[in-house]
Amino acid sequence: MATLKEVQSKIVSVKKTKQITSAMKMVATSRLRGAQNNMEAFKPYAGKFAEVLGSIAGKSGGDASPLLVPREEVKKVALVLCTSDRGLCGGFNTNLITKAEKIIKSEFEGKDVSFTCFGKRGRDWAKKQPQPIEDEFLDVVGGNVEFSVASYSGQKLIDSFLEGTVDEVYLIYSDFVNMAKQVATVKQILPIPSLEDVQKEKEEDKDAGFLPEHICEPSSDALLGQMLPKNIFIQIYDALLQTSTSEHAARMRAMDNATKACEDIVGELQTIYNKTRQAGITADLMDIVGGAEALNG
C-alpha cells in the first residue's frame, strides 16, 4: 500500500489540476458568450443578404456568373478546413479531421486535393498528409474573427477556381447546433450550388408572397456577379464564427468533465488516505498493547 505521504502529495497535485481545468472552463464560458454575440450580430447581415440575393437570382438566368457553372470533370478539389488553434477541447478537432479524412478517402478518391487551413490543429494534421497546403491562417478561429480574413481567403479561392487550378471547393467546419451539440459539416461553396435552394428557403420564410420588383443598377446580372463572391465570403465567415463558437462550447464541456473527474479522483484518494492512516494507527496500537502485555506477563 502507498504511504501516507505519497497519497497526500497525489491529492495535492490532482487538486491543482482541478484548479486549472475549472479556470479554463470559466475562460471558455466567457469566450463562448463573446463568440455567440458575434454570431448574433452577423445574423441580420447574412439574412438580409440572402434575401436580396434570392430576389435577384430569381430574375437573372442560371448562368449569370462563371461561379455557378459546375465543371464537367472534377479533378482538383480544395478543402477549407476550419479547426481550432488550441487543444484541450475534447474530440472537437478530431471530429473535424476525421471528417476530412473520410471525405478524402471516399468522395475525393483519385482527385487532387489541396488544403486551406484555418487553425493550427488542422494545419498540423494537414502537414503530415501527402496533399499540399495552399494557404494557412492561424490565430483566427477562437478569437475575434474579422470579415477581411474571410474575404481575403475567399477571393483567393475564387481566383484559383476561375483560373481553373481548382474545380471544386468545400468547407469543413463545425456547425454550432447548441451548447451540447456541434456537428462537423461539409459544405460545397464552389461552384455555387444552385440558387433556387436559397430562394426556396426564403420564400418559405415569407408567408405573404410579396416580392417587390427591384430596379437594378447596374443590371441584375452584373449585380448578381458582384454579389456571388460576397456570398462566398459570407459563408466562409459564417463557418469561422460557427467553428469558434463550437470550439469554446466543446472546451467548456471538456473542462467541465475534467473538473468533475478530478473531484472523483480526489474523493477516491481521500478514502485511500483515510484507510491508510487508520491502518497505521491500528498497527501502532497493536504494538503498544502487545508490548504492555509482554511486560505484564
Partner: peptide, 14 residues
Amino acid sequence: EFGALKGHTTFLTS
C-alpha cells in the same frame, strides 16, 4: 450618388 426619400421606388444597387 443617389438620394432616397420616403416613397422612392424599389431599387437595388451596389
